[in-house]
């Protein structure tokens, strides 16, 4: 999926999509007429105020947690995934373990991590890393496994070492799949982040939203929701642009 096919057309599409979203929200707010769904401009106004308050701090904490988790998951899962995809014999040995542990909803381990790692950043980062790790691992492994072996032998015939093969063949060939799994993983990471930040913490955008809820300050709650959505949007945009720059060859 391409976010913006063409710059001008893309900006236009983007503008009326945002406008449409606000229109929908506005109508919903009018129809429901509930304090739980404030009017869009009240929420935006509150967002402006909160940004001058402590929202930016909470946003920063959340951004730190999600970025560190995604980077950690990538650094761990990509080499392992390529290694397993490259060595089918080892993959066959590891497959049952991956197969059995992949469907476990790892988010239920949150209480365990809270006890073991405390209520700070570590427990949240480990949880998000663990969950996105699996998505990246499985996608990368399959991409490496399905790589046309002709490329490998042609580079081998140039006298390539194992490291050369990783660097010039496996990694670049798997990169599009890795970035796709990161984009999917980003959605999961943000969802898990929210959950992790709603319990036993005083920091992060999840806390900000739930704290506003408990104070019945719904405008501020929506400011938090908008802020978190924007954070997700910009991270997504970053990955999309990264793919555009790094994987030119897939769009030829």
């Amino acid at each position: 999926m391409r976010l913006m096919p063409n710059k001008q057309q893309g900006l236009f599409t983007f503008a009326y999509t945002v406008l449409g979203l606000f229109m929908g929200w506005w109508m919903l707010a009018l129809v429901l007429d509930s304090p739980a769904v404030p009017l869009p401009w009240d929420a935006v106004k509150s967002l402006g105020e909160s940004l001058r308050g402590d929202l930016l701090f909470h946003l920063g904490v959340s951004l730190y947690r999600v970025l560190v988790s995604l980077i950690l998951a990538t650094v761990l899962a990509v080499p392992l995934g390529i290694f397993l995809g490259k060595n089918p014999a080892l993959d066959n040995k590891a497959a049952p373990l991956v197969y059995l542990t992949y469907p476990i909803p790892k988010v239920v381990l949150m209480p365990v991590f809270l006890i073991l790692l405390g209520i700070g950043d570590a427990s949240k980062i480990v949880l998000i890393t663990l969950i996105t790790f699996y998505q990246i691992l499985v996608t990368t492994r399959d991409a490496a496994k399905n790589l046309e072996k002709g490329y490998v032998s042609s580079v081998k015939s140039l006298g390539a070492t194992s490291f050369d093969l990783y660097r010039h063949v496996y990694f670049p060939a798997c990169l599009p799949a890795i970035l796709t799994s990161l984009r999917l993983g980003l959605g999961t990471a943000l969802a898990v982040l929210f959950l992790a930040e709603t319990y036993a913490t005083q920091e992060g955008i999840g806390f900000f939203i739930m704290d506003s809820l408990s104070r019945m300050n719904y405008e501020e709650m929506f400011a938090g929701i908008i802020a978190m959505s924007l954070m997700g949007f910009f991270l997504y945009l970053l990955l999309d642009q990264g793919e555009k720059v790094l994987c030119v060859w897939t769009r030829l």
């Binding site: 046309e148 002709g150 490329y151 042609s154 063949v169 670049p172 994987c247 060859w249």
Partner: peptide, 9 residues
């Protein structure tokens, strides 16, 4: 005949 060149380079 095929696979001589790497498509990502």
């Amino acid at each position: 005949q095929d696979f001589g060149l790497l498509p990502w380079k």
